[in-house]
Amino acid sequence: MTKNQQSTRTLIRGALSLLVTAALYEAVARSGWFPAVLLPTIPTIVEALIASLRDGTMIWHAAYTLYRVMFGFALAIVVGLPLGILMARHQRVEHFFLPLISALMPIPSFALVPLFMLWFGIGNVTTILIVFYAATFPMAFNTWSGVRSVNPLWLRAAGAMGADENSLFWKVIIPGASPFIITGMRQAFLRAWIGVVGAEMIAASDWGLGWVIFDAKEFLNADVMLAALVVIGFIGFAFERLVFGTLERRTVQRWGMVRVAKG
């Protein structure tokens, strides 16, 4: 089978599982067991989605959410990546931060939204900080694991070839830890994406996909809610597959450091 045929098959399989799920939903929605306002049919949802895309509101909501998530995610990488490396390289940093990370990582970011609202008010600051909180720890934790798992033979070989600390860091440790670093980014983004929608529900005003859902509740607009959910799911999926999938294919998969994912 050629590469192209294989990716077409993967695409068909993915589409099939989505179609079956959608058909089941549609059957339940049309069965009349539930009021149509609460369980709108797929055409109604699509209509709401198209209308909100046409007048640009959904695009703006998505843009706000993406802005917040990217801002917080970038901050999380800028902080989490060096933190993870420092932890792996210096025992004292590890001793200080590891218990802290273990204690803070299990706290759902959503549980911090009210507190952050008290401190920073409603708007971008709170939502971005929630994203930052959600994403930093998985980033740091995975990087820490990755640096510790770098093959000592690579460090030895590099040392024997005259690598100084700087080259060792950029040319051996970072690429050597890259499978974990990419996993860290994936997990961080996932938590950031979940976190931002939650934060926007109560800590955003007027804009954001989370805010749309919460606002639609006031008017019993289940179709708008579901349309926003579709957008949330779609963007999350696109990032996972396109951004991180591509990153992985171009780096660690190409280098044979991880097995090729099927499906």
Binding site: N151, L153, R156, A157, M161, G162, G176, W255, M257
Partner: peptide
């Protein structure tokens, strides 16, 4: 310490940088 007057080859194939 190690120096560039010596080159080293190990037994393990994993000594190469996979990237």
């Amino acid at each position: 310490g190690h120096g560039m007057d010596r080159g080293v080859v190990f037994q393990d194939f994993a000594q190469l940088f996979p990237w």
